[in-house]
């Protein structure tokens, strides 16, 4: 009896484990490997912004002298601005590639465009540039025609 149960267990285990391989790898295209430096930009901005917040708090609790505060503030402001500029140019390039965004006016400044695109990515709707099908989520490929977005 237990042996039979064990056999069933073994078959079940093998079936569950082999199932993804038998179904093949078509349905889920592996995510394209990101450039390692691509992630650095946003991270650098976040670090600079967090640093700006922190030095403000440290000065308020008396841990940081005013001179040090000013020096660090100008430095991290520059860093944050530099990171923002990089981000903006990337967003502008992406916007040019994607064409006009629905609901967004082309006269928006790059900052607003970025915010709008982020909003769209988070919850709004987008449409495939090739076949015009409504897109779900914010994948890199259209589910209808498979075009790269």
């Amino acid at each position: 009896m237990q042996l039979l149960l064990g056999l069933l267990l073994a078959l079940l285990a093998v079936a569950v484990v082999l199932d993804p391989i038998l179904r093949g790898r078509a349905p889920a295209p592996g995510p394209a490997p990101r450039e390692p430096d691509e992630a650095r930009g946003p991270q650098r901005k976040e670090l600079a912004l967090a640093a700006l917040k922190e030095i403000e708090f440290d000065r308020a609790t008396g841990k940081l002298s005013d001179a040090d505060y000013e020096r660090m503030r100008s430095r991290y402001t520059e860093e944050a601005l530099a990171a923002i500029r990089v981000e903006d140019s990337a967003a502008a390039a992406a916007a040019a590639r994607d064409g006009p965004l629905p609901g967004g006016s082309p006269t928006l400044d790059p900052v607003e465009a970025l915010i709008a695109s982020a909003r769209t990515a988070a919850g709004g709707r987008r449409f495939c540039t090739e076949c015009g099908a409504p897109l779900e989520g914010s994948g890199r490929f259209c589910v209808e025609c498979g075009a790269r977005l």
Binding site: V17, D19, P20, I21, R25, P29
Partner: peptide, 28 residues
């Protein structure tokens, strides 16, 4: 075995098989 192979070769089917294996081993 399939976890490292799947990760190295970028084969999502092998990777998913490995993840399933982790759940199955836990159940066993």
């Amino acid at each position: 075995a399939v976890a490292f192979l799947g990760g190295r070769r970028g084969r999502s089917d092998l990777a998913r098989s490995a993840e399933r294996a982790a759940y199955v081993v836990w159940g066993l």
